[in-house]
Nucleic acid binder design. Structure first.
Length: 406
RNA sequence: CGGGGUGUAGUAUACCGGUAGUACGCAUGCUUUGGGAGCAUGUAGACCGGGUUCAAUUCCCGGCACCCCGACCA
């Protein structure tokens, strides 16, 4: 991709209406555009990152048997009346049509997925079922903040599982937990992400959150020094000991909740009278779990934990491009770009007629992991630099390709 | 939802009760090219409604938007 043709440009100044470093860089670098508080357009660079995050999640959820579907955002009021959440969920967006009929804009999809699965599952033979989707959620946050960290419309992966027994739910729950760690590992935040015991809110007594430690976090967690699990504030007040190992020595940290998993059991299957016939001819209530990851929030979290004063530093798996090729002093880098593309690598090619300083500054801001500079000064060689490291290495183009493509 | 703050060009900002200035951007031309180049010319602005006043971008009231603290939060 030629950088001169890339839609959206970098800007020099930080936006005045953003506080979070992730939002500042995303806007300056032209990854996102703010439409209103908590609502953002994804521009080409931002969308590329989002799609890569999405694909990693898709692969790992598929690996635990998830089947991808796509449910509507626009939902009937009756379903929300059945679960009682039409009245109790304060951040539910309610919309009216011209004849005053009311609808919900989905903040989550239990009210859609439970009747859906019920239609197709009537016997124990039809369970378990695991379905998931990537979907924009709507939540009436009275105070959106932190850019993509807390939006009113945001992309989420939500997985729902349905089981005959609680034991089966427990087992699957653990498989999803492991899948989540693989996801956060590939996205590059595993080391700073803690499995955290939390209260279940309106869902269940307890739930588990995946909390990534960063000063930008809104949540406070307590990391157990003995077992490296964590508990959140409510659990600390309640138990004052580690819910994993019983230890009582904690380190307090600020963290962002990038994912969460719940054992809903029959909380939402029961209102829809969703039960199945077991092999003994008796009806059993269906056990349910739900599992979420906020994609925009995860993307912003990566920046919060990986940046410097010049800009973002993307991990290779989710960088908008892995390679940024910059040509200087009128020496064309077309050949090396073509060589990379032949090998299936997408590159961002900076062939703009602007000063070297501007190119370097933009490259640092955008944060693509590998930078190759083609110039007269380097002669037949090229300069290779990794965004996260300081040193620049001079090498033959072939060596550079070997190093980067691995 | 409670409390506070701010609304001036595409962006960041300045001044002002009497027709708005700077920087960056953008456009054009020339010169430049290893860490956001230089010169010249040009482009573009007071959130909305009401009030006070001879006169309001400026003061007052209301609305709206955005930001911050708290509450809330799958």
């Amino acid at each position: 991709m030629k950088q001169s043709e890339l839609f959206a440009k970098t800007v020099r100044t930080f936006p005045k209406d953003e506080e979070a470093i992730s939002a500042k860089f995303l806007i300056r670098a032209g990854f996102v555009d703010k439409l209103m508080a908590g609502v953002y357009t994804l521009l080409p660079l931002g969308l590329r990152v989002m799609k890569k995050v999405e694909q990693i999640i898709r692969e790992e959820i598929n690996a635990v048997g998830g089947q991808e579907i796509f449910m509507p955002s626009f939902q009937p009021k009756e379903n929300w009346m059945k679960t009682g959440r039409w009245e109790t969920m304060t951040d539910l967006y309610k919309v009216k049509d011209s004849s005053d009929r009311e609808f919900a804009l989905g903040p989550t999809h239990e009210e859609v997925v439970v009747p859906l699965i019920k239609r197709f599952a009537s016997s124990y033979k039809d369970l378990p079922v695991y379905v998931y989707q990537f979907q924009n959620k709507f939540r009436m946050e009275l105070r959106s903040k932190g850019g993509l960290l807390r939006g009113r419309e945001f992309m989420m992966k939500d997985l729902y599982s349905f089981h005959l027994t609680e034991g089966d739910l427990d087992e699957y729950y653990n498989r999803v937990k492991e899948a989540y760690f693989k996801i956060f590992d590939r996205i590059g935040i595993r080391k700073k992400t803690y499995f955290t015991f939390a209260s279940g809110g309106t869902f269940s007594k307890y739930s588990h959150e995946f909390q990534t430690v960063t000063p930008a976090g809104e949540d406070t967690i307590y990391v157990c020094s003995r077992c490296s699990l964590a508990i959140n504030k409510e659990i600390k007040n309640e138990l004052n000991k580690c819910a994993g190992c019983g230890g009582d020595d904690f380190k307090e940290e600020k963290a962002i909740e990038v994912g969460n998993i719940f054992k809903l059991k029959d909380k939402y299957t029961q209102p829809f009278d969703f039960s199945v016939m077991d092999d003994d001819g008796k009806k059993r209530p269906v056990m349910m779990g739900c599992y979420g990851i906020g994609l925009g929030r995860t993307m912003a979290t990566v920046i919060e934990v990986s940046n410097d004063e010049r800009g973002m530093i993307w991990p290779e798996e989710i960088a908008p491009f892995r390679v940024h090729i910059i040509e200087l002093d009128g020496k064309s880098a077309k050949k090396i770009c073509a060589d990379f593309e032949k090998r299936g690598e997408e590159i961002l090619y900076d062939e703009r007629g602007v000063s070297p300083g501007e190119k370097f500054a933009d490259a640092d801001l955008i944060g693509i992991p590998w930078r190759i500079v083609v110039s007269k000064k380097a002669g037949s060689k090229v300069e290779v630099k990794n965004r996260a490291k300081a040193q620049i290495k001079l090498m033959e183009p072939k060596q550079a390709m070997k190093l980067i493509l691995k």
